[in-house]
């Protein structure tokens, strides 16, 4: 199966929609420099093929949402920040399960791409990455392997 390859304009859409979902400044701005559009492009190219297809569909669905939700002759990119957020909230609460699921998949992907970064984990001290002292001191009986 051929890998899904996003077009340049789709990468730009992913950056805009992604940053509307998870704006810069989150967690003190430690992951503000994540190139979200590029990461999204990579994610779409990964198997399985149907996940990439669903992601691409969710991008188009969101970008064109002003047309089909309120019959406004605009795209997502033509909305201001408040309107983008309101639209995303509306899609996440859509009556249609398929719409909700597609946008939820988009949200999970964006959160994974933005927060799935060691700097974010360190900021949260997740897994003791920032402060090992919070972990249990290694036991004397130590090593887990059998041999």
């Amino acid at each position: 199966m051929r890998r899904m390859k996003l077009r340049r304009f789709e990468v730009r859409w992913a950056e805009i929609i992604g940053r509307a979902l998870v704006p810069r400044g989150v967690l003190g701005g430690v992951v503000d420099d994540v190139a979200l559009g590029e990461e999204f492009r990579r994610e779409c190219a990964e198997p399985p093929w149907y996940a990439g297809l669903l992601l691409r569909f969710s991008l188009w669905l969101t970008w064109l949402a002003p047309f089909w939700t309120s019959f406004r002759f605009r795209t997502f990119g033509g909305l201001d920040e408040d309107a983008r957020e309101k639209l995303l909230e509306r899609l996440l609460e859509a009556k249609s399960y398929n719409v909700r699921m597609a946008i939820m998949f988009l949200k999970i992907t964006v959160c994974t791409l933005v927060l799935g970064d060691e700097r974010a984990l360190r900021k949260l001290n997740a897994y003791g990455l920032a402060d090992e002292a919070e972990l249990v001191p290694a036991r004397k009986l130590g090593g887990g392997r059998t041999s």
């Binding site: 989150v26 967690l27 920040e81 957020e85 999970i108 933005v114 949260l124």
Partner: peptide
């Protein structure tokens, strides 16, 4: 639940979601 997955289960989008993410700890 890993942070990046937990974040997606928090309500909302945009600044409202970001405010929840800042409470993840």
């Amino acid at each position: 639940v890993p942070p990046e997955v937990a974040a997606a289960r928090l309500p909302g989008a945009g600044r409202r979601l970001a405010a929840f993410i800042d409470k993840l700890e």
